[in-house]
Simulated scan of single mutants.
Amino acid sequence: MFDFLKSSSNYQNLTPAQFAEGLREPGAVLLDVRRPDEFAAGHLPGALNLDVTAPDFAQRVAALDKTQPTYVYCRSGARSANAAGQIGSAGFAHVRNLLGGVLDWPEPQVR
């Protein structure tokens, strides 16, 4: 397996194609973990904005349904990998991280 596809024990890294496919799961939750200004400049359709650097990030994550598949992304994949690890450690069952972030996302973003 390629090193960049390795995942931690509590989340899985997905390529953009795998991520797009996974978003079709019933009940999938899409989280954009960038800053609000980055989110406002363009994000994936249907995304919720939970800034991973905000002091209340863990509290906001705790309010989500841990049983739903959770898909996380940021600009390049670094912050979302951090966020995915935190979310997985918080007891979420199915956490997925977008490799390459929106920089590698092939579809248009919405504002």
Rank of each mutant, 00 (worst) to 15 (best):
E21G: 02
A47C: 02
G27L: 07
W105C: 02
A20C: 01
L44K: 06
R79E: 13
T15M: 03
G42C: 03
P16W: 05
E21C: 01
L64F: 08
L99P: 03
E107L: 04
T53I: 02
G101S: 05
T53H: 15
I87A: 08
A62W: 06
A81K: 09
P108A: 02
T15W: 05
D37M: 10
D37I: 01
S89V: 00
P26D: 12
G22T: 02
P108Y: 05
G46P: 11
G22K: 03
P69G: 06
P45K: 13
P55D: 15
Q12K: 14
G101I: 03
Q86V: 06
R96N: 11
L103Y: 12
D51R: 06
A81I: 03
Q109N: 07
R96S: 14
A62S: 13
A84V: 01
N10H: 14
P45C: 00
D56A: 04
T70Q: 10
R34M: 09
A41W: 07
R24S: 14
F19I: 05
D37N: 10
N82H: 15
A40S: 08
A90H: 09
Q109S: 08
L14N: 05
E107V: 00
N49V: 00
S80E: 03
N82D: 14
A63C: 02
P16Q: 08
F57C: 11
D56E: 09
Q12P: 06
Q86R: 15
A90W: 10
G22R: 06
S7V: 02
S7K: 06
G27F: 12
R79D: 07
D104G: 01
C74F: 03
F2E: 15
P108D: 06
E25N: 08
R111T: 10
G27M: 06
Q86F: 08
V102H: 05
Y11W: 13
D37S: 11
A41E: 13
A93R: 14
Y11C: 04
A17H: 10
E38Y: 05
R24L: 07
D32S: 03
D37V: 00
A84C: 13
A93I: 02
A17W: 04
N49C: 13
R96E: 10
V95R: 12
S89H: 12
S89M: 10
V33Y: 08
V33T: 08
P69K: 11
D56S: 11
S89E: 15
G46H: 11
L99Q: 14
F2T: 11
A81Q: 14
Y11K: 05
E107C: 00
P108H: 12
S7A: 07
N97V: 00
A63E: 15
A54P: 08
V72P: 09
R111Q: 14
F39L: 01
G91Q: 09
H94K: 15
V33H: 11
L50C: 02
D3R: 14
A83E: 08
L31F: 01
A90D: 13
E107Q: 06
S89F: 02
N13V: 06
S80F: 08
K66M: 03
F4P: 12
S80K: 11
L64V: 09
R35L: 09
R75Q: 15
L48T: 01
L31N: 03
D51K: 07
S9N: 14
F19A: 04
V52K: 07
V61D: 09
D3I: 12
D51N: 14
R96L: 12
V29A: 11
A20S: 08
Q86P: 03
A93E: 14
F57I: 00
Y73R: 07
G22M: 04
